[in-house]
Amino acid sequence: MPRALEPQQTPAFFVRGPSPLARLVFFSALSLALIATDSRLHYLTEVRQGFIALLHPLQVVANAPFNLYHASAEYLTAHNTLVETNRKLSEQALHDGAKLQRLNELEVENEHLRSLLGASQIIAQPARLGEILYMGRDPFTQKMMVNLGTRQNIKPGQAVVDGDGVIGQVTRVYPFSSEVTLITDKELSIPIQVERNGLRAIAFGAGVDNVLDLPYLPVNVDIQTGDRLITSGIDGVYPVGLAVAEVTNIERNPDSPFAQITSKPVAGVKNHRQVLLISIPEIESALGTVINNTDSSAKTGKPAEKNSTTTPIPAGSASQNAIRQP
């Protein structure tokens, strides 16, 4: 036996398990596999839901001191502050009530006009009041968590608004909470309309606090600083006419075919703790009728379905324009 060829082994004085390098390689491979599975295959949704549900008690404990602080602050409000807010609120209620009386009348009239034009009816979208649990912790995304989840029948895709305007959209739902992606997130875009002239566009989140971009609009587009942007309702997720943002800056660079337009969202996510989660309108009945009409051939099923979802929208927007023109 040639002893010199035997591998030299370092004596293990203490049992230390696998070497750090071996462990690093193992856990790195595991993390890379997890990243790939999560980003490409979407197998881990249930796993994430389970873990978040397990973390929920810890989250409740972590939120407890802040809830206690808010509760005691509410309890210890001075008498004159209460009287003052009460007076303000009743004044506000009077103003709003007067406006609402006109709104009812206008709604009936609008419905009547729409039925005369044969346009699709605006669907009522009930909403639920949710409370913000905490703002997202990831500096790379614009998110927040609210306290409603699958237990309260919240579904991914629901629009989230507050009293001033649109906040964002529900992207992930957990048993007791759900994740809302804000409209300022880089991944989210929202179909909008300029309130002044009805111009439609899509606003994209800039990934920074309080900035929305309006890319792909020509240099000579009719937008001014201070224009209000409202939802156009084309997507079928956000109801028509909610305030989204206000144009803050327009840069018309003659070198570029597109104008650089930035706007500032009007919703004050940081000012209050309650938000409204608007349910997604059900359009199954409309789909069903069109599919029944064209169920003869399986091949045309898909285009027909596509048409059925898009046809009501141009009709609706055309009618809006028709009403706006006179």
């Binding site: 595991l30 993390s31 890379l32 596999a33 997890l34 990243i35 599975t37 999560d38 980003s39 881990l44 796993v47 994430r48 873990f51 978040i52 973390l55 997202g136 912790r137 990831d138 790379f140 995304t141 998110k143 992930r172 994740e179």
Partner: peptide
């Protein structure tokens, strides 16, 4: 999990 990013 806490930040809500991709696993891993």
């Amino acid at each position: 999990l806490a930040t809500g990013g991709l696993f891993g």
